[in-house]
Simulated scan of single mutants.
Amino acid sequence: MNAAWFGLIGVVVGGLISTLWGWLSVIRQELADGLVGARLVDDDLARLEMGSDGAEAGHQPLPTAQTWAENRVALAKVLGFRQWSTVSAVYRRSDPSSAHTWSGRDQELSAAREALAPLAAGKRHVLSQRWHNVFGPHTDD
């Protein structure tokens, strides 16, 4: 009888360890994908910041839609709500008809790059943010 209980406990503990390991593996992959996406989008935003310094009125560079399209899912998984809203606002306002009337563009670009900075810096800097995004209150971020 004791052997049966030990066997059952072993199966339960093994299942918990396996589930936890799988969950941590998914989180690690999401962070890796988010890190790559953040660096690529940050590079696109840096190009925009440099281009807006010397741009003529009505000829401001636009965000690269392809960079955003390829990386937005990875970023959505790892950024908090406020960070996501700040970064995605730059791309929502990027259609050519509104580019020349975009007021506050430099502030939005700076805020978006600031929101991406912890993730673009590396996984170690975003682990606590990821933990907060998963388990913390969703109104703060």
Score class of each variant (00 low, 15 high):
D95S: 13
L75P: 04
S18G: 15
A38N: 04
L31Q: 09
D95W: 06
L20K: 07
E114P: 00
H100M: 11
R113K: 09
P118W: 03
S97C: 03
W21H: 05
D95N: 12
E49Y: 02
Y91K: 05
D141L: 14
K123A: 06
W131A: 08
E49M: 08
R92W: 06
P137H: 12
D95Q: 12
W102L: 14
D106T: 15
D106L: 13
A55H: 03
H125Q: 08
V87G: 03
Q29M: 10
P96D: 08
G80N: 09
R47P: 00
D140K: 04
V12G: 00
V11C: 09
R93G: 06
K77Y: 07
P118V: 11
I9C: 06
L116K: 02
V26F: 04
W68I: 12
T86P: 00
W23F: 13
E70G: 00
L16S: 12
M1W: 00
G7I: 13
H59E: 14
A117S: 11
E49P: 00
F81S: 12
F135N: 01
T139I: 09
G7L: 14
W23S: 12
G34K: 06
A55F: 07
W5E: 10
V126C: 02
D141C: 03
A4M: 11
V11D: 01
R124P: 00
W131F: 14
R28L: 12
S85Q: 14
R105Y: 01
I9F: 13
D140A: 14
W68T: 10
D95H: 10
G122M: 08
